[in-house]
Design a protein around this nucleic acid. Sequence first.
DNA 1: GCGACAG
DNA 2: ATCTTGTCGC
Length: 242
Amino acid sequence: MRVDDPGPWPRDEAEALALQDRLRPLADHRGPGPAAPRLVAGLDVAYAGDGRGTGDLVAAAVVVIDTASLAVVERATATATTAFPYIPGLFAFRELPVLLDALRALTRVPDLLLCDGHGLSHPRRFGLACHLGVVTGLPTAGVAKTPFTGRHDPSALGVERGSGADLLDDGERVGRALRTQSGVKPVYVSTGHRIDLDTACAHVLALAPHYRLPETTRHADRLSRDTLAAALGASAWDERLR
DNA sequence: GCGACAG
DNA sequence: ATCTTGTCGC
């Protein structure tokens, strides 16, 4: 699929913060978003090395699933070297470039993109899912394994699959702790762009019939790791030929 | 000032 | 994120 160039990329923290402030107003969290998306894509990135600095090899993966059958219909990958350090709240500047490369290798255009990480539930209300949505123009939502910004009332979250509790931060609803499997830790869903929270949660739940994480992210996670391993193997192979 | 801090 | 053995529980 075609993906516009994200523009001048921040070189330091100050520039990154400024860009988030400039793009934040462009994210649409009202939706309603795709009611019945046919193609949903999961995105993830795997890291080599300690995973926090720059110059480390990374592999991104995008896996498109057909919601009717939950079957994988297309996969795409990309590898790169990290150009931005890991800084909580500035996650997108580390992962977005290689994720966009993977998306460019995609033939089809997904109806919804599900990211590994947060969207609105971010200290400045502009997590990776929001940034990815604004850049691609596609509906996006974030599915994180741990909370970031916002808290929920523990007693408000039922133990059964499907129950959820809104994440509140300074009185603002920024996302939802969603139980995708009974008796299992919840995932943290937040809107990224062109979708509302209820719709995002409904899709995440539908994509997670067996496990805690939606099939999209599970497939993307596995593919990104395999791609990284292959890249590392290839470089080791190159070394051997010298 | 101190601790916490998505992947 | 990644590094990693055994272990508790259904």
